[in-house]
Design a protein around this nucleic acid. Structure first.
Length: 542
RNA sequence: GCGCCCGUAGCUCAGUUGGAUAGAGCGCUUGCCUCCGGAGCAAGAGGUCACAGGUUCGAAUCCUGUCGGGCGUACCA
């Protein structure tokens, strides 16, 4: 039984009894234990329209409530008019039993059961290695996928790329230039060429594998560069536990005729016109500031057009939920894609777009402007090799996606030794160790224990925290903001560490020891479940 | 110029439908292992929540303006 639901039901009943209007109120955990565990602002909100003093109103509501005291031990009213509820210990013990019974499933819901979701993320074109900038989106997308799976969604992780555009053409030319340079010919990099040393490596391996007779126009330069770089990208992702289920190439939408079809359909709606040799999308007719080019005067579509085709394709695949993870640089473009689809009579309500801000890289106290083309970047691999998968994942997920975070490379290693992720992992390892220690002394964790023996503040605080996990996961599903989980776990680990220093688990008091073993087993379960959603290891030893 | 995001402790950042005394880590000061792991715990110093107005019983949170930063504002993606 969810206590929140129970209480809001009871409060609504009280409103009816008192002939008061029903209103949207809050029922939230308190920050300060002196106000109990849950508190509501109901009386405060109602005071004005009921034309009553909020405290008097709160007291009336309080006396109208008929609460089961096996759930709620105490109800109080505090200024300026909050009604506060304190859990009964019995309720907390029920929550603990719930964790122990459900184990690895504790905190799951069936809100997504039977539904499919597509999460598109990374989607970097294979022009160079992934950078720490890509790391943020990679971890964010994968974790959002985990959250959806946790609630029962059948999740497809998708990577969308374009191997036929301008970027890739320049990539091929860059490799060709290095190839001929290696062979002693004086051919300059193209003006916007890729300057990274990986281009030379690719050129060298082409000399080894394909010989020295390739012509400047050979498609092999671009094709082999793509193949090599893509395999590096996949490996970089794999290093931090990320595997995509599907790779979708923009090119397929040209070949299938989808691109032409989009243009034709938009033309029929009079949303496309020709001007200065280009085809324009009449977005002003859809309430936008300015029209946008769909097909350049060169005959090449802009990225917008295949994006529309791609999203139509995703809608045609009938996912119940389509999540796009974009960097802040795409902020302006997805609304056009959505309006195009709406203009084509598609329902876009299943599309959720998550925009994340960029990582600012700082090296030697200076901001580094990252550019793949100019080879001014720190790769994701370098970071992973430096601090390891768990730190990389936790570092990128512990901050909100809207924060413009600064990443100081010089501090990365230093900070990694103090990284908050170890705080969580250490709590887990500590618990495992206590359980082992207990078994050694013939104290074995069992679901048969007397919860009434848990009376210490540290025990009850830990217990409450454990019980909040399902709520946190429901919030994470609603907001798709993984840092909620990281914040919660940090708090939970803190409650455990405090409990640990206040209370000894294995003692001469067998009954108490059994109860505490059950408590820490519950804590371990939640930490492990939470970390698994973040894609972070929960080690038995560190 | 216009649009989106942001401005919270020395530094990096939490603070989620507006709630009670604004938090954590790092760094700094000081205590705590004969005892389940000290990668921990406890305590201290450190704040005009950029600034100015407004809404409200109540604002870091919502609104307006100013200042500062990031990203867009391409026939790049």
């Amino acid at each position: 039984m969810n206590l929140k639901d129970y209480l809001s039901q009871k409060l609504n009943q009280a409103l009816t009894e008192l002939d008061l209007p029903s209103v949207d109120f809050q029922l939230a955990p308190t920050k300060n234990p002196q106000f109990g565990d849950l508190s509501t602002n109901l009386a405060l909100i109602l005071a004005k329209q009921a034309k009553q003093n909020p405290i008097e109103l709160a007291n009336k509501l309080k006396s109208e409530l008929d609460l089961d005291n096996s759930f709620v031990r105490e109800v109080s009213v505090t200024p300026p008019g909050f009604i506060n509820f304190t859990f009964s210990n019995h309720y907390l013990f029920e929550a603990l039993n719930d964790v122990l019974n459900k184990g690895v499933d504790y905190g799951k819901s069936d809100m997504g059961t039977g539904q499919s979701a597509n999460v598109e993320f990374v989607s970097a074109n294979p022009t160079g290695p992934l950078t720490v900038g890509h790391g943020r989106q990679s971890v964010l997308g994968d974790t959002v996928g985990n959250i959806l799976q946790w609630h029962g969604y059948n999740v497809t992780r998708e990577y969308y790329y374009n191997d036929a555009g301008r970027q890739m053409r320049i990539l091929g030319q860059s490799v060709a230039a290095r190839y001929f340079q290696e062979l002693g010919k004086d051919i300059a990099l193209p003006e916007d060429g890729y300057q990274g040393s990986y281009i030379k490596d690719i050129a060298k391996s082409i000399i080894v594998d394909q010989g020295q007779e390739l012509t400047k126009e050979s498609p092999l330069f671009r094709e082999l560069a793509e193949k090599t770089i893509f395999s590096d990208i996949r490996e970089s992702l794999k290093q931090i536990g990320i595997v995509h289920d599907q790779f979708t190439n923009e090119k397929t939408f040209y070949e299938s005729g989808a691109i032409d079809d989009i243009v034709e359909s938009l033309k029929k709606k009079d949303l496309v016109y020709e001007s200065e040799g280009a085809s324009w999308f009449r977005t002003t007719a859809l309430g936008k500031e300015q029209d946008r080019v769909l097909i350049k005067s060169s005959g090449e579509p802009t990225y917008r057009l295949p994006d529309i085709a791609y999203h139509r394709n995703k809608l045609d695949r009938k996912f119940d939920l389509v999540v796009d993870i974009f960097g802040a640089d795409h902020q302006d473009t997805y609304p056009d894609v959505l309006s195009a689809l709406e203009a084509l009579d598609y329902d876009v309500s299943s599309i959720r777009v998550l925009i994340h801000q960029f990582v600012t890289l700082i090296r030697s106290g200076e901001v580094v402007k990252m550019s793949t083309r100019k080879a001014n970047f720190v790769t994701l691999d370098e970071l992973t090799n430096l601090v390891g998968k768990d730190v990389v994942r936790y570092f990128f997920i512990m901050r909100g996606m809207n924060s413009h975070l600064n990443f100081d490379l010089d501090l990365a290693q230093d900070q990694s030794e103090k990284n908050p992720v170890y705080y969580l992992q250490y709590a887990h390892a500590r618990i495992v160790n206590i359980l082992k220690h207990g078994e050694h002394l013939d104290f074995k964790y069992s679901t048969d224990f007397n919860a009434e023996r848990l009376t210490h503040d540290s025990e009850l605080t830990l217990l409450k925290s454990i019980g909040e996990f399902p709520d946190i996961m429901a919030m994470a599903l609603k907001s798709l903001e993984p840092q909620l989980i990281a914040n919660y776990l940090h708090g939970l680990a803190g409650h455990f560490h405090r409990f640990y220093s206040d209370c000894r688990v294995i003692t001469d008091d067998k009954e108490l020891s059994q109860a505490r073993l059950a408590l820490i087993f519950g804590a371990k379960t939640v930490i492990a479940n939470g970390l698994s959603i973040l894609g972070v290891n929960a080690p038995d030893r560190m």
